[in-house]
């Protein structure tokens, strides 16, 4: 784990000049990830904002090896990279100690890349999969994904006269990964520097498949001011919408329990994607969101209790 001051002194591996929006979450996440290991890192990325903003030919923002293949196959492609490394190492043709990281947005992870991710985790490749979850298909212009939360306005779940944003709750991908019974699964978000870096550090120290689901706020997709990324990220945790927790070898640990959870309305108010929900006639939707958050939190508490019984 590296403190922010220390990490500021380290050589930058994702350099300035990339074209991510001001206030975007994933450049922060990348900094947290890179500052969490001294070993060389190879990145395999899905198609998405991260890839298109950092590799516009003939430029590249990457000071580490980086490969992009397609939208739905970063985990499968990384399987091949790690598979080649393993083969060459066994033959004595490779002697570096490399960490492999596959990255995708929520579209490339929760949806179109789910099969590829599941396969890679089941095969126990030594890789860390990170999803920078901004809760919609931001790169193609803010379409709903299975990570989009209920009520959110997206361009394919618009706040209309009859239907008021997305009508389904988000898929609990973190729990799907827990069900893969891999050594390490965690949720984090950009605002919690210590939490994120300690999770990346832990993931890098473990051999085998690891998964980190990182909530990554999106300025144009969520509709907040670019200066508010950290605040929005923090509030997702304070409201219990995005609990910080980790599951190590099946044992749950909630890393932060708000003394008093904040009502979801405070969070919704910050973002244009929820503006329609604040109208009195949509009160019920907000109540349902709140109920769902509380239910999920209760489930999580039970899982923590159950897996920590002596």
């Amino acid at each position: 784990m590296a403190a922010p001051k220390q990490s500021a002194k380290e050589p930058v591996k994702f350099i300035g000049g990339h074209r991510a929006c001001a206030g975007c979450g994933f450049p922060i996440l990348l900094k947290q990830m890179f500052s969490s290991t001294k070993d060389p890192v190879v990145i395999v990325s899905a198609t998405g904002c991260l890839e298109v903003t950092s590799t516009i030919f003939p430029f590249s923002a990457w000071k580490v090896p980086f490969m992009h293949n397609a939208f739905e196959n970063s985990a499968a492609t990384c399987s091949g990279v790690e598979g080649a490394y393993r083969s060459l190492k066994k033959q004595g043709k490779e002697n570096q100690n490399i960490k492999f990281v596959a990255i995708g947005g929520d579209g490339g992870t929760y949806d179109i890349g789910l099969q590829s991710l599941s396969g890679a985790m089941e095969r126990r490749h030594d890789m860390l999969y990170i999803t920078y979850n901004n809760e919609a298909y931001m790169n193609t212009g803010i379409q709903r994904s299975s990570a989009t939360i209920m009520g959110a306005h997206t361009t394919t779940s618009p706040a209309g006269k009859v239907v008021h944003g997305k009508t389904q709750n988000s898929k609990n991908l973190t729990e799907i990964l827990v069900a893969h019974e891999i050594p390490y699964v965690a949720q984090t978000t950009v605002a919690f520097w210590q939490d994120a870096t300690s999770k990346f550090s832990k993931a890098f120290s473990i051999e085998g498949p690891k998964f980190i689901n990182a909530l990554s706020p999106c300025v144009p997709g969520w509709g907040y001011h670019m200066s508010q990324t950290v605040k929005v990220s923090k509030m997702a945790v304070e409201t219990n919408l995005w609990p910080l927790y980790e599951v190590e070898n099946g044992v749950y640990k909630i890393n932060y329990k708000p003394k008093e959870r904040m009502g979801i309305e405070e969070y919704l108010k910050l973002q244009a994607r929820f503006a329609h929900l604040l109208k009195p006639e949509n009160k019920e939707i907000v109540e349902n969101i709140q109920k769902f958050i509380d239910w999920r939190w209760e489930q999580l508490l039970k899982k923590e209790e159950m897996t920590n019984k002596k």
Binding site: M67, A76, G80, V81, G83, Q115, G119
Partner: peptide
């Protein structure tokens, strides 16, 4: 050979690409 028994042909060729790009 390191045999990677993937979960689809899409992943088979994707893994092959990752491997070939890594000098194997």
């Amino acid at each position: 050979t390191n045999l990677i028994t993937v979960e689809s042909e899409h992943s088979a060729i994707s893994a092959c690409m990752g491997s070939a790009a890594s000098g194997a």
